[in-house]
Structures are given as structure tokens and as C-alpha cells.
Design a protein around this nucleic acid. Sequence first.
DNA 1: AGTCCACAGGAAGGGCAGGCGA
DNA 2: TCGCCTGCCCTTCCTGTGGACT
Length: 399
Amino acid sequence: MEAVQNIFTKFLENKPIFVNREALTISFTPESVPHREKQINDLSRILAPALKGGKPSNVFIYGKTGTGKTLVSRLVGTELERTSRGLGASPTKAVYVNCKMKKAADTEYRLLAGLSKEFGKNVPFTGLPTDQVYQIFFNTLDSTKQNLLLIIDEIDSLIEKTGDEILYNLTRINQELSNSRVSLIGITNNLGFIEMLDPRIKSALGEEELIFPPYNALQLQDILKSRASLAFVSGTLENGVIEKCAALAAQEHGDARRALDLLRVAAEIAERNAEETVRLAHVDVAQGKIDLDRVIETVKAQPRQSQAVLYSIMQLADKNSNVQTGGVFEVYHNICAQHALKPLTQRRISDLIAELDLFGIITTKIISRGRYGRTRIITINLSDTVRKRLKNLLYEIFL
DNA sequence: AGTCCACAGGAAGGGCAGGCGA
DNA sequence: TCGCCTGCCCTTCCTGTGGACT
């Protein structure tokens, strides 16, 4: 007990590092967004007609992860909503949906059900025909006599899953409504995405386009500095910590989210070690920890079958470097037999392998060996620490 | 030049769960 | 309770393919 008490008293005795930890998370909405003034102004100008009852153009926003797309659209959306409550303005509601959120807005049905709910009408989460859900949404929206600014984040994953008909329907929605107007903001990090769309939808949705370029290291430093001033007790950061986080994140592709994560995790590590300053070494540890956590969490969330496939891949990779689909399927079959798991078909395993690649846990490459067929060559490119932990995890699961 | 391997990956559809209204 | 709807996971069947081998 004494040991526990020691930890607690020591923790209390330590000077705190954080004033406001939230300021370093992605859910935090800062008052200003450095280096995005142009995008904010452009977007505001495009959306402003909504305040006078007009229909603003639909907007398409491109940019890689962590370039401020979501933040800027939410910020402008909220501001528009607030201003629209003022005198003489036409009431507007900004609704943000993320299509990658499982069970929320990843299908046409769920998106519409979620939107109806935003306007106070509950729709069962399955069961109704889709056209009926459309009707419910139309009627609910029209009866509220509000304009809707619909921000659809990761719109490419919605289209990939459900086809582009939903966008066609949404862009035509205004013809069905008499009291309300709908404008769309589509956000994607897939630059080639709009080229895949039906030309009708392309012209309807891409009335305006905004590009969010990646941040460079100096810009990332500014962002980190402004957040750090809110988050930390002054003098907590060792010289060069911000610069290091910015440089590491700039190497990826100018991802501000990554930079903020690095800084936050580095500080949390310092805090846990009962240190009063965040040092450069903490950033190194943070870098490794973020990778590890991401992989472990992803694998834990996978269904058993997918874990079995990964386990097979890891077993094979330990023995030889040439891991390919056929071999994985064989080992997988043995694992299934040992663990009373019903084996899936090779077709399905092929999809599961592709999925693991998508998650970034393995890397696959399709090659042709001529006479000896075409196959996927699978490699695991994780650091030794991550790999070891992953092996332990899978070993525990398939004990 | 033709064959053939070992798969990739598209299309269609089965079966189940969760949920509706009648 | 029944018929119907959607989403999800999966199977079955199929066509496509790069290049070593004959």
C-alpha cells in the first residue's frame, strides 16, 4: 500500500505540466486556425448567401489528413449557424457527418436516418425502405423551415461503399423542398475521387473547389506553438521539442494531427515519469508509442477470422521471407483446425489480406512468377518492438 | 506462339440479424 | 405473427492476367 501511496503523493507533489490537455486533441476547436486564413475566407464567402435565404454553391474540399479541412469547415459552419440566428437572417443549421464512422453515416440509409434525427425525427436504424427514409428526411427538413449546410467528411468512402446515387439525390434535393435549402460540403483526401464521379454529379457538387495544401515544418511549428500556449504551463517544454514534433510530422506529409498527437503523447510520457519538463527524448518515445498503439488497437478490433489470418502471416514471416496468399491460406487452415474455427474460403481470405494491407499492418504487392502463377507477396514492415508486441497479442488470443 | 500457373478480384446471391407495419 | 426491408458477412462462380516454360 505504501508504494501506491508514494506514487499518488509524488504525483500530487509534482508541478503539473498541463493547463488544458484538450487543446492538443483533434476534437478541440481553436479560435484561430493559423495558415488557413485564405481557406476560411473563401469558404465563408461561398456560404454567405445562405444568410439572405439564397442557396450557396456546393463545395468540394480536398486535402490530405491533418491539413485542417474538417476543422475549417466545422468552424465556418458553426459561425454561419450562429450568425443566422441573428436578426433578419435566414435560419441555417450546419450538420457534420463523417462517413468513416462505423454505424453512423457509412451507408445511405444511416446517413439519412442520422440527418432526420438532427432535425428531431427518429428513424429506426434499419427496417424501412430507403425511399421512405428519404421522404421522412425531406418532410422533416421542410417542416422546420431551416436551411441545411451538410458537411460530409470522408465522402469518398461513402461513395465507394454505396455508389454515387446518393450524391445525385442530395444535389437534387432542393427541387423537392419548398421551405428549406440544402448545400453540401464534400470533404475528401482522395484527390482522384471526383474524376470517378458521374459527370452530372461532378458538376452539381463541384460548383466550388477548395484545396488544402499540406503544412510545411514552419507552419506546423506555428500551429503547435499556438496550441502549446493553451495546453501547457509556461516553461514546460524543453527547447526544440516543438521543432522536433513539427519536423517529424512534416516528414509524413505535413499532418497537423500527427504533430499534435506527438506533442501530447510526449508530454503525457513526461507527466507519467513525474518529470516537470517535456524533453526531446520524450518525443522519440512518443513516436514509437503512437505507432504501437495504432497497430495494437486495430488488431484487437478485428474479428477472429482476420486475426487468424494475421497470425498465419506472422508465423510464415518468421520462417521465410516469401509469404504469399496460398501459403497463408494453408497455415490459416491449420490454425482453424486447432482452434475449432470454421475456415473461410480462399476468396474471402484474399479480401481479408487486402484489408490488413489497407490498415497498414502488412504490405502486399501483386507479382507474377510466370509459370508459377500470380500472387500477392506479403511483408510485415513494422518496427521490432511493434512486431514483438503484436506477436504476443496474437499468441494470447490463440493460446 | 501458345500454354498454363496461382492467384486477383468482379458479380450475384444466400443467410442471418435487427427492425418495421399490418 | 408474417412479410418485407436493409446491412453485413460470406460463398460460388467466374473471367482476367504477367510472364516462365515448352
